[in-house]
Design a protein around this nucleic acid. Structure first.
Length: 421
RNA sequence: GGAGACGUCGCAUAGUUCGGCCUAGUGCACCACCCUGCUAAGGUGGAGAGGGGUUUAAACUCCUCCGUGGGUUCAAAUCCCACCGUCUCCGCCA
């Protein structure tokens, strides 16, 4: 939900934002009109209600013989109050529906346009080169006994897999490296629920345009989360936070589930695009004026993880039209995947400013004692997909893979993954 | 899954019998000040959330909120219905 105050004070800013996303601009004027109608009808209802309250006291205090006449009068008033209340409620619903469909106001220097209009902020690390024909991660995974796709498909269907042997160990090592990194930065680790109630799913903004991406369990009216961001954002819903000691930072570890509807035929090989994977997600609650600095810090921590894994990557500033509805800015980090000859997204970090917090009713107290929404940010610190880039980047001619230094302590000192005979 | 109890403004609790005197009382914790030459105790006052109006702002004022949503009524914390949640006992299963 955008800030209704901003809608009144600076509708032009909201129009600009919608424009750069390629979204409806007209909706802004509709929202302003709905806001006006809403406030007018609230005023009408409330003055009638005040009248009714006062009259009720007269009725209660009146002597018995007058009561009957007064009650008859009160009945008339009650009917008018009820009608006015209905009007006010409808106006409120109308406004919420319209304003709720306006996406978060994009930060000014975010590139306008769609998926291809991103801006590359930097490229870091030399791309791996080989004096042999490199194998892709699926082939390496099989050689090393690390990834068993055939059996994943047998058990659960396409886009499922088993991580096995060094593959299973590598994922755990990666997650633990990321967790230690997060702990060092003061994050509080959380292992989160992956089934959540509809209102939490809606509050985080995933039930809108992404709803067909989400697994739903009708028997229990619960959703399987595609990222622990959902549970992490819901964690403090309906709360007033104390941020005086600095941002509240959580590192959420969970399995993530995605239907990948509409991506049939895309990335079918290997574990690049799967229905289920693990992820360590950073989530922070900060004062709105600190959100942009925090966003830079999140990118920084992500970069240090990729560097620790010896990966070559670029950081992109995602264009407005490719942002989710909650995000005001998003940076993706994409790692070089040698056998694809291209960069693939390994992390994504979004600054949701106060948009998500307003929906979930997460506030802090200002110096004057008033409550106002916090800003929320999220970012990936590690996921299963990283195995793709790690295996392919560090492979050798014989199919073995050199373990990046930073991961060795988490693998009992193992330095090399070797092909199974 | 069965049976029962319960859900009140930070925490604890009163109020629900019999609808109007609840603008929800009290204790603890909290904040400010006063008093007592430390601490403790005591005194006075303040203090919840959301939303309208007005305003530069503050002050002021009105409406809503007693788990959530409906209903009955001139009037609901209180009566009725549904749902959610918590606790206790029993059963079943990891």
């Amino acid at each position: 939900m955008i800030d209704p105050q901003l809608l009144r004070d600076d509708p032009e800013a909201v129009r600009r934002s919608q424009e750069s996303r390629g979204a409806s601009v007209d909706i802004v004027d509709k929202a302003i009109a709905a806001d006006g109608a809403r406030r007018a009808s609230i005023g009408e209802f409330e003055s009638l209600r005040a009248e009714q309250n006062a009259f009720g006291k007269t009725v209660a205090a009146a002597p018995k013989e007058q009561k009957q006449a007064l009650v008859a009068e009160a009945q008339q008033l009650a009917a008018r109050v009820k009608a006015a209340q209905q009007v006010a409620q409808d106006a409120e619903t109308e406004f919420t529906a319209i304003a709720g469909s306006i996406a978060n106001v994009v930060i000014d220097d975010v590139p306008a346009g769609g998926e291809d209009n991103f801006v590359t902020l930097r490229e870091v690390g030399a791309k791996a080169t080989f004096d042999f024909e490199p194998r892709d991660h699926a082939e390496l995974g099989e050689l090393l006994g690390a990834i068993d796709i055939a059996r994943g498909v047998k058990v659960s269907g396409s886009r499922f897999y088993f991580l096995k042997g060094v593959g299973a160990r590598l994922e755990l090592a990666l997650m633990n490296l990321a967790l230690d990194k997060a702990l060092a930065e003061g994050f509080i680790p959380l292992i989160t629920p992956t089934l959540v109630r509809p209102e939490i799913m809606a509050g985080t903004g995933f039930l809108g345009e992404h709803s067909d991406e989400i697994y739903y369990l009708p028997a229990d009216d619960l959703y399987l989360t595609g990222t622990s961001e959902v549970a992490l954002a819901g964690y403090h819903s309906d709360e007033i936070l104390d941020l005086s000691a600095g941002p509240l930072r959580y590192a959420g570890w969970s399995t993530c589930y995605r239907r990948e509807a509409g991506s049939a035929g895309k990335d079918n090989r290997g574990i690049l695009r799967v229905h289920q994977f693990n992820k360590l997600e950073m989530f922070t609650y900060v004062l709105p004026e600190q959100a942009q600095e925090e966003h830079e810090r999140l990118v920084g921590w992500q970069e240090s993880m990729l560097q620790a894994c010896g990966l070559s990557y670029r950081v992109i500033d995602v264009a407005a039209g490719d942002l989710g509805s909650s995000a005001a800015r998003k940076f993706d980090i994409e790692a070089w995947v040698p056998t694809q000859g291209t960069y693939r997204e390994l992390t994504s970090t979004s600054n949701c400013t106060t948009y998500q917090a307003r929906r979930l009713d997460i506030r802090y107290r200002t110096e004057s004692g008033k409550t106002t929404p916090v800003a929320t940010l999220n970012g990936t610190l590690a996921t299963t997909r990283w195995l793709v880039a790690i295996l392919e980047t560090h492979q050798q001619a014989d199919g073995s893979v050199v373990v990046p230094d930073a991961l060795r302590p988490y693998l009992g000192g193992l330095e090399l993954f070797e092909p199974q005979s």
